[in-house]
Simulated assay, not measured.
Amino acid sequence: MTNETDRRVALVTGGAGALGATIGARLAADGSDVVLVDVDAEGVERAAARLRAGTGRRVEGWVADVSDVDSVRRTISRLRDEFGRLDQLVNNAAVNRRADLASVGQQDWELVMRVNLWGPAVLCQAAVELWQAAGTGRVVNISSRTWLSGGPLAYTSSKAGLVGLTRALALELAPLGVTVNAVAPSMVVTPFTRQGRSEDEFAEFLARHQRMTPIQRLATPEDVANAVAFFASEQAAFITGEVLHVCGGAQLAPAP
């Protein structure tokens, strides 16, 4: 049985989605209690219920909007009241807009930046007091291979910014015993990556990505979750400010 001093608490944003739920499941399997948060109230509760049944850990599904400061602060306050700590923060929530320079608008640009970049920053800001009290913590930001290869304008800019944020936070939070790292996957087949494409369009999109990947397959949510679990573990206690590409070698190739 895990005692109180060994107990870990993880917060995973975007927890209603395939990637967030898989990350939550891996952290729960490794012994953490998990709070999944998402703007999708029904989806996040369904995901939490599946994890509770499958892992036996305490798993909660909470509604929160990471782009809204008040929502984030309420979430961290509730976490403090109900769990008393935050050992592992996984900033996974994201939105994408498939717009190029000619078509991107201010509203879409600002939404992508608020969710993908501001959300992780304000979550870390709100969690500082918990980390100060604990003297330790792990932050894992989910970036994307697009920060190297290019891609949709706002999304790529936000994911490159998240790498910069990771490095800046790694320096700022190190005195608190907190490590901050990023995982940058290539194409993972989820509803998020389909982005409104037709069956034929999506099949060709995936085929292009597989052709350019030296290890001839696409990434799975489990591949990403394994990398997150490493950074969130004690085995990575002396690693901070790094970016781990979960790409099967595709980080070495140009965009398809």
Results as ranks from 00 to 15, higher is better:
Ala219Gln: 11
Met187Pro: 00
Leu169Ile: 14
Phe230Gly: 06
Ala232Asp: 12
Gly241Glu: 03
Pro214Asn: 06
Met212Gly: 11
Arg197Cys: 04
Ala207Trp: 05
Asp223Thr: 00
Gln216Gly: 09
Pro191Met: 06
Ser198Pro: 07
Val224Ser: 01
Ala174Tyr: 07
Pro221Tyr: 07
Gly249Trp: 00
Ser186Asn: 12
His245Gly: 11
Gly249Glu: 00
Ala253Lys: 14
Leu169Arg: 03
Ala168Tyr: 11
Phe192Thr: 05
Glu234Ile: 11
Phe238Tyr: 15
Glu172Ala: 14
Gly196Arg: 03
Asn181Cys: 11
Thr166Asp: 01
Arg208Pro: 03
Leu206Asp: 06
Gln216Tyr: 09
Pro214Cys: 06
Gln210Glu: 13
Arg167Pro: 05
Leu169Ala: 12
Asp200Trp: 08
Glu222Tyr: 02
Ala168Leu: 12
Gln216Trp: 05
Asn181Tyr: 01
Leu169Asp: 09
Phe238Ile: 10
Glu222Cys: 10
Leu176Pro: 00
Ile239Pro: 08
Val188Ser: 00
Val178Ser: 10
Ala170Gly: 09
Val243Met: 07
Leu169Thr: 09
Ala253Asp: 09
His245Phe: 15
Ala236Ile: 06
Ala170Trp: 07
Pro254Ala: 13
Leu244Asn: 09
Thr193Met: 07
Leu173Gly: 06
Met212Asp: 05
Val243Ser: 04
Thr179Val: 04
Ala170Asn: 08
Val243Leu: 03
Arg197Ser: 04
Ala232Phe: 07
Arg167Ala: 13
Ala170Glu: 04
Glu172Gly: 12
Arg211Asp: 14
His245Asn: 11
Thr193Arg: 03
Val188Glu: 09
Arg194Gly: 01
Leu218Asp: 00
Val224Cys: 00
Glu242Lys: 05
Ala229Arg: 05
Ala255Ile: 13
Arg167Asp: 06
Leu252Ala: 09
Asn226Glu: 15
Pro185Trp: 04
Gly248Glu: 05
Gln251His: 15
His209Cys: 06
Cys247Glu: 07
Ala229Val: 13
Ala250Asp: 00
Ala168Ile: 02
Glu234Leu: 08
Val224Asp: 02
Thr190His: 04
Gln210Asn: 05
Thr240Phe: 09
Leu171Glu: 14
Val243Tyr: 10
Pro254His: 08
Val189Lys: 01
Thr190Pro: 04
Ala225Ser: 07
Asn181Phe: 06
Thr179Ala: 06
Gly177Pro: 07
Gln210Leu: 11
Gln195Met: 11
Val228Gln: 01
Thr190Phe: 13
Glu201Asp: 12
Arg167Ile: 13
Gln235Gly: 15
Glu199Cys: 08
Pro214Gln: 04
Phe205Leu: 04
Ala203Val: 14
Phe192Asp: 01
His209Leu: 02
Arg167Leu: 14
Phe231Pro: 02
Met212Asn: 12
Ile239Gln: 08
Leu173Thr: 10
Ala219Thr: 13
Ser198Met: 08
Gln235Ser: 14
Thr179Arg: 02
Ala232Gly: 06
Glu172Lys: 13
Glu172His: 11
Ser186Glu: 02
Val189Glu: 08
Phe205Cys: 03
Glu199Gln: 10
Glu199Ser: 10
Asn181Arg: 05
Val228Ser: 01
Phe205Pro: 03
Leu244Val: 02
Val188Arg: 01
Pro191Gln: 02
Val246Ser: 02
